[in-house]
Design a protein around this nucleic acid. Sequence first.
DNA 1: AATGAAATGTAGCCTTGGTTACAAATTAAA
DNA 2: TTTAATTTGTAACCAAGGCTACATTTCATT
Lengths: 145, 145
Amino acid sequence: MSNAAKKAVPHPVQQAERFRRSRHDRSVELAQDYVEAIADLTLAQGEARVTDLARRLGVTHVTVNRTLARLQRDGLVNTRPYRAIFLTDTGGKLAEESKRRHQTVVAFLRSLGISEKISELDAEGIEHHVSPETLAAFERRLKKR
Amino acid sequence: MSNAAKKAVPHPVQQAERFRRSRHDRSVELAQDYVEAIADLTLAQGEARVTDLARRLGVTHVTVNRTLARLQRDGLVNTRPYRAIFLTDTGGKLAEESKRRHQTVVAFLRSLGISEKISELDAEGIEHHVSPETLAAFERRLKKR
DNA sequence: AATGAAATGTAGCCTTGGTTACAAATTAAA
DNA sequence: TTTAATTTGTAACCAAGGCTACATTTCATT
């Protein structure tokens, strides 16, 4: 049975597509978490330092360091040894977008009667997988009542 | 070091907690995707084979192979060289739970007016981050109209 | 039963994201 | 200004999850 398609399985290719996207999402999540944290810290204390990020993200400063190198490579941040970290324009935009998305998801969950704590917790994972369409639906719902 | 806490930042520790959880979630996602796929395939064709899984998950058979080794190590599947893959009791339970969660999330998104395609796509990413509380809220909402 | 195709396994490499241990630079205090 | 503490950087390791290339097994077909 080479080419004959007698599988009773549901659309293997499309399935694969889904997993691929969800895998790709994962690679962007970290970047979003970082730029968001950097934006917050910069706002709150004037600058974002490696140690702050480490504490905030719950990892060691080493991990932060190497991740920042990648983010710089990808054009999201500017760093110089022993200096504060700054977002590039691209990074800044990503941060804003992420923050907005995060807030929307949290507000939406809250509107379903979920506690603040759980809303925040779940949103952290969910927000990265919400497409523009779904985000729009959330916002629609929030306005509508 | 240690005890001085004079940061103006919002609850760094709790923040870190969130990230930690979301990181942990990621490590469980793959397992869920695999057991779900194995359950589906077994149901649909009587057995789950490496190649099917590879096609389904959009990765090479090599990746599937090594992942299966990990799943076996973790007690979710039973595999023997050149044989079909079977779920353990634990694996089976996880698969069912995952499937139910997946369906609920999809149904919930659909109920918000989101297209089937997008619902499926987003659910794939979202479902892994939905806590029992939130899932319950989704179900509540689905029943309530 | 022999042979060729398909499935499965293995070796070895890559990137990401995490770690500890140690080195160097910066900052704060004596 | 020297010294001590803190912050940042670097080296070297680990596991997970991808890959390609090649070897082996199984299966189908003649």
